[in-house]
Amino acid sequence: MDNKKTQIYDSGKELFSLNGFKDTNVSDITKKAGVAVGTFYNYYSSKEKLFMDIFLDENVKLKKSCLQSIDINNSPLEVVRQMLALNVQGMKANPILREWYNRSVFNRIEQIYREENGLENFDFLYDSFHEVILTWQEEGKMRRDIDSKMIMTIFAAIINVDTHKEEIGIQYFPEVLDYMSEFIMKGLTDCP
């Protein structure tokens, strides 16, 4: 990566981590990076684009860490439960990833990112888990009549439920998420 782009990226990551997305602006990032504002726009079309690039990189690191922490030989239900729990813990612990829960911010970032990059470039939630799904399908542990990408989309939907826990009811949410995971996994592992 170009040295100036790296400086901008690293400065943005540090400032977004310290101040959050809303309270960080391009001027702050370029000042910290020691570059002109115009240089920023040579590499990133917007603050949102930089943030999303950082978010995606942090998300990939988290998913890889989650996968390394679980025993894939456990039952698919147990693996998914562990993966969901580790994912939620990791997102809440990382200030960049925690912005996912600030829906007004994240909806804006997501919209701009989709407009710039297209819908097909936004499948980031469980890409590294796809190989596990394919293996389970080959081993007969998961339904083969459902496309693996559809299964990945179902898992993404489970994660998205977490952003609606207040509407569901905080007191019920952990149990609701656990039941949803159980019911979905039973449906996906009931191989015809």
Rank of each mutant, 00 (worst) to 15 (best):
P76R: 13
E115H: 01
N73I: 08
I72E: 13
Q82V: 06
G90A: 05
D127A: 15
D71I: 10
I96D: 03
L119Q: 02
N94E: 03
L125E: 08
E116M: 10
D123R: 13
S104L: 13
S104P: 11
C66Y: 01
N121K: 13
Q68W: 01
N94I: 04
P76W: 07
I70G: 07
F106M: 10
R114E: 04
P95H: 03
S75A: 15
V79Y: 10
C66M: 11
Y113D: 07
E110Q: 09
N117V: 07
E120G: 06
V88C: 05
I70S: 03
L84M: 14
V80S: 01
M91R: 07
G118R: 05
E110H: 05
L67Q: 05
R108F: 03
R103A: 15
I96F: 05
V79N: 11
V79C: 13
R108H: 07
E99A: 10
L67R: 01
L84V: 13
L86W: 02
S69W: 02
R114V: 10
I112T: 00
L86G: 08
N73G: 09
R114H: 01
E78S: 14
A93K: 09
V79M: 14
P95Q: 05
N94G: 01
D71F: 07
Y113T: 00
D71P: 10
N94P: 06
Y101L: 12
P76I: 15
N74D: 15
P76A: 12
C66W: 00
L119G: 04
S104I: 13
R108W: 02
N87Q: 07
S75L: 15
N74F: 09
M91I: 04
E115S: 05
F106Q: 02
E116H: 02
N87P: 00
L86Q: 03
M83Y: 14
E120L: 14
M91F: 08
L125V: 11
